[in-house]
Design a binder for these strands. Structure first.
Lengths: 206, 206
DNA sequence: GAGCGGAGTCAACATGTGTTGGCATACGCT
DNA sequence: AGCGTATGCCAACACATGTTGACTCCGCTC
């Protein structure tokens, strides 16, 4: 946080070219660090994913990690940014929401390690848990809002949806209960979809 | 493991009194260590629950922990032993199983920190995950077996039940999603019971 | 009282961690 | 070409961790 360095935008009488991508020769390194960090966080969780190990995976020196991301927390924040890319509720038939959501989630979990990393870190690290709370609040809650008429019930229903989706990911990708691993995504979706559908749209249970 | 110490049972011409409880003066300390360990593991997970912190909580020296439990893994093994005390399936009406199971689980989670400790450690630590797999195999699977006619489907159904119960515990006790925390156990049970019931007894979804 | 073994304390070791600063190098511009 | 700066590596620090061994103290038995 050294002062005296004005932002690169519109320095007086500076050449019109902004910091060219050629100057960002380090982009490759930065990306390699992030990828290694995601892998390590996903595999080991926050505490056991050491900066040294991440740097070794990325074939650079540990001090580079510090230079580019400040500290370990900054690295985690940069490595794990999640956009669930939830489908547009308006385009979803109301009675297909469960099936669509489950399929979308399973696909996202299979396609990258970021969600695994976030879940592993969220269970051990306060910052990780808060990150997950933020995703829930800003991405899941609004979606649930579109399916539940009674606004009072939206948070509880969204939490229940999350509990089932995260719970399945937990048993399948983290704890690796053999039957949960053995299920193919079609079967899993067939089992889970009605649950999600009910949490979203069924009347409040008496 | 120093040899030369014969087991206390039936030493020839020994006084009939077995090692008196007075000799087990250390029992109080042992118990204090275990309790502190459970708290720390539940609050911090495996890596951040340091032996020094546990010893401080128990008001003893860290080396005592080593003397009594060998090493950190041994301490964890001793501190986290779980009996789910699942109800006898024979005594459960088939269509009440979901409700009863959910109520039982919620009560167990509320009553002690052991389950929280196990879940936290299970997500970061290989040994913890294996412990949970063992509990699933030896306590949950047999129960599910009593409710599902088709033996082929038992593991998947048991895994689904676990995914929902663990998922709810995850969002409520670990990640602390506010709506999941806000639900009282009655509401939570009302929402979750039908899900569990369906996983246990409903026909295979087409 | 002498001896003994368990209970507990203290200090230390070896190791691994996040993090920092200094030094070399190669690129991009004038 | 020459220079400045971004890029990278090396060595080191300060600290925390699991773990070990030697030492003291207490209660008990001969």
């Amino acid at each position: 946080m050294t002062a005296g360095k004005p932002p690169a935008s519109s320095a007086p009488s500076a050449p019109p070219t902004p910091p060219a991508p050629s100057q960002r020769r380090s982009e490759a390194t930065r990306a390699a660090i992030l990828e290694a960090a995601r892998e390590r966080f996903a595999a080991d969780g926050y505490e056991r994913a050491t900066i040294r190990a991440i740097a070794k995976d990325a074939n650079i020196d540990p001090s580079m990690v510090m230079r580019y991301y400040g500290n370990k927390e900054g690295l985690f924040a940069a490595a794990v940014t999640i956009d669930l890319r939830l489908p547009d509720p308006a385009a979803l038939p109301r009675d297909e929401a469960g099936r669509a959501l489950v399929a979308h989630f399973l696909a996202m979990w299979e396609e990258s390690e970021v969600l695994t990393a976030l879940l592993r870190v969220g269970t051990t690290n306060q910052a990780g848990a808060e990150r997950m709370q933020g995703i829930f609040r800003e991405q899941v809650l609004p979606l649930a809002q579109r399916f539940c008429p009674d606004p009072e019930q939206v948070p509880a229903r969204a939490a229940l949806v999350s509990s089932q989706l995260l719970g399945f990911a937990l048993t399948r990708y983290i704890l690796r209960f053999p039957p949960a691993v053995a299920l193919d995504t079609q079967e899993a979706a067939a089992w889970l979809a009605p649950t999600i559908q009910r949490y979203l749209t069924a009347p409040y249970p008496q």
